[in-house]
Design a protein around this nucleic acid. Sequence first.
DNA 1: CCGTTCACTTACCGGTCGGTAAGTTCTGGA
DNA 2: TCCAGAACTTACCGACCGGTAAGTGAACGG
Lengths: 200, 200
Amino acid sequence: MPPTTRDQLLAAATALFAERGFYGVSIAHIANEVGLTKQALLHHFSTKEKLYGDVLETISGDLDDLRADALSISSDPTAQLQTFLRAMARRDRASTIRSRLLMRELLDNKRRADTAGVWYLKPFLENLVLMMQRLPAWKGVSDSVALAAVYQLLGAINYYAVSEPTLSGILGGQRYGELDRAFGGQLDRTIAQVLTRSSE
Amino acid sequence: MPPTTRDQLLAAATALFAERGFYGVSIAHIANEVGLTKQALLHHFSTKEKLYGDVLETISGDLDDLRADALSISSDPTAQLQTFLRAMARRDRASTIRSRLLMRELLDNKRRADTAGVWYLKPFLENLVLMMQRLPAWKGVSDSVALAAVYQLLGAINYYAVSEPTLSGILGGQRYGELDRAFGGQLDRTIAQVLTRSSE
DNA sequence: CCGTTCACTTACCGGTCGGTAAGTTCTGGA
DNA sequence: TCCAGAACTTACCGACCGGTAAGTGAACGG
């Protein structure tokens, strides 16, 4: 079954919004990517805002799938969260796009939420807090404390993910490769330290 | 001495670019903020691109001042880096704007650098690597390894900084305050762990 | 007093934006 | 066979975009 036009538009929109941001892409640009006119796009998504919302909903669904996968791999909460964070840190095309899009949403969603009142990331964060609170070292801590901890890991992962073009531009391809390996090792250590809540 | 028109335009541009991104702000909007027309702005900065470049240059100068301040406070490299990172993590208006602007630059600068060939963040990162390599635990490590380590801290700090509107929107003001305190404590621990390179 | 330069204005340009209106073409079920 | 609706198209709208052109008035050095 070939992908529907709607799905093709959604995929093109996801990639372009991630790369250039909401205001940096026109709906005509997105439609052209699929070989259509912008009015064809508006036939499927009544407004640009609606299209963007559907993109975010898809992404948040993908994140939840990732979380479900991590839960199914082991019954140990620590291993589950570790698996999930490593999956987020993987740098394939899909996760790169996802990281960039989420970062842009973090930067821009206040104005959008002020008018739309929708926080697409809320369920995702709530699930992370629950996962954190199941760890032996973090059992019983308040939501705020758990979120603060998990947020630092999210930050470390996604900030780096978003920096890839800049860093490889500054460093050059070869030295960026070195950085990438060093980062993976350091990240594993940081994750372990935060999850076990070890101090020093 | 009152601020010059040019400085006023620069300040308004900095705040607006940080809030809405390069494509989200028109030069007319920036000029109006200071009570001028966009042609007055174009008199001081020949193009929008040039204005944006000057904004980035100012920011990178500010970051370097922050670094110099940290160096002057103590002669202990660990205390210096700690001071600098804590200064970056402070959430006053200036640092919030700076974090947002840098994040946007990370997301967008590839296209800009492809044409302009300028990496405003390069000297800043190089200095951080040097500071890192002066720490006892990190003496002699390669640039890549040092950068990987420091980058995780930058990520943790700036990702959180950028999330403020989203998080306080999702959580509400009171619970965001709790989160803020929890984050500060956790961040200090993470910084200490990375700087001392302790494992587990 | 004159000429230049600076700081800024109004008027305007071509182009792009998101969105509307009004068709046309294709498809599948009664 | 007809017809309804889906999936598009072309044509167009007003608003806004970054940037150019040309000029105005005030400050200032000679």
